[in-house]
């Protein structure tokens, strides 16, 4: 079976190059924006406290380096797509390579922007409280590292898609399922990456405001970020189902579109709850730093609020799974 009248190798190479371009083009958005934010806050911080310019610049560069990692993942996937061998070209392999590029491209956006937020706000925090700059930088590093998780999920899915042998899988609907798998993890990572960054940003500010509350602030940040990562875990789950379930051959349009739609549904549906959970965690972290004696109450309300905000991601997952298993 051929598509668009192209032979298998041409089709697969075309898909790989488009995928590579998408991986790097989309993947550059997040890190660049995040690092720009960091630099802008660093300038502001130096203007306020020029005596500690050295510390602030050091902190800015460390933060930007971590924020950069999401786009480095994209670069790796793009280079692999451009130069890898294609032992089993065909429609399934073509779909798989295109999906790998899309997954990594979309997946790097949230983590890149997200990691820029704590990096920038920690520069301002150092200008405000230079005495605890070490503690602020450590806190920023923990926060930005957690922000990278969604991008890492996207990279894992992209690598599986790159190297998964097409085997004898039926061209349709398997190829649609693979593209759905890429979109599910890639899009869902946007919200979680950005949300995790919001929580981490507030915690850097909190440490500067009340250095003695560092433990409570970091704990609240980590719990909040963990919950904000759930939509991207749902995305990963749907991707794995789409990648590893074997679908009976069907050239019916609805079979293919249904699986693609399952991936899109979970991917898009994960964006909002990821950002919302991050906002909630940001509010909670900010107030734990100010009223550490009520950190238990704040943690409780944060978790309740996040759980409710999570509900639409769960609906999206249910609809995705219905599209995969029932319809």
């Amino acid at each position: 079976m051929t598509l668009l009248g192209l032979d298998n190798l041409t089709l697969t190479q075309t898909a790989a190059y488009v995928g590579g371009a998408a991986a790097m083009g989309l993947g550059a958005i997040g890190a660049a924006t995040g690092e720009g934010f960091t630099a802008s806050r660093a300038s502001e911080a130096i203007a306020r406290n020029e005596e500690h310019a050295g510390d602030i610049i050091k902190n800015m560069l460390v933060g930007q380096a971590i924020s950069e990692s999401a786009s480095i993942f994209s670069l790796v996937i793009a280079i692999l797509l451009l130069f890898m061998d294609m032992p089993d070209p065909g429609i399934v392999k073509a779909a798989s390579l295109l999906a790998a590029g899309l997954c990594m491209g979309f997946g790097a956006i949230g983590s890149g922007v997200g990691a820029g937020l704590p990096a920038g706000r920690s520069c301002l925090a150092i200008a405000r409280q230079p005495a605890v700059s070490g503690r602020i930088t450590t806190n920023m590093l923990i926060g930005t590292a957690v922000c990278q998780t969604p991008a890492i999920f996207a990279m894992v899915v992209a690598l599986i898609l790159l190297f998964k042998p097409a085997g004898g899988a039926a061209a349709f609907p398997t190829s649609a399922a693979l593209i759905g798998a890429g979109l599910s993890t890639g899009l869902a990572a946007i919200g979680s990456g950005y949300g995790g960054g919001m929580a981490a940003g507030a915690s850097c500010e909190g440490v500067a405001r009340q250095p003695e509350t560092t433990t409570a602030v970091t704990t609240t940040m980590l719990v909040g970020q963990a919950v904000a990562q759930t939509p991207s875990v749902f995305g990963l789950l749907v991707s794995f189902v789409l990648m590893f379930r074997s679908f009976p051959e069907s050239t019916a349009l609805s079979a293919s579109v249904g699986l693609l739609s399952a991936g899109l549904c979970m991917g898009l549906g994960g964006i909002g709850p990821g950002i919302g959970n991050g906002m909630t965690a940001e509010g909670a972290v900010r107030w734990v730093a100010r009223r550490v004696d009520y950190s238990g109450d704040l943690m409780r309300i944060m978790l309740v609020g996040q759980a409710v905000s999570q509900s639409t991601a769960i609906y999206a997952m249910v609809v995705s799974l219905v599209l995969i298993f029932v319809v």
Partner: peptide, 30 residues
């Protein structure tokens, strides 16, 4: 089928962000 996915996928964005905002302000108020 495509419409079902888009409906739930796009429809989940707004409530997710909005409810998060409400919860963030509730933390602040508490």
């Amino acid at each position: 089928l495509l419409g079902a996915g888009l409906s739930m996928g796009l429809g989940a964005i707004g409530p997710g962000v909005g409810e998060g905002m409400a919860a963030a302000k509730a933390c602040e108020a508490i």
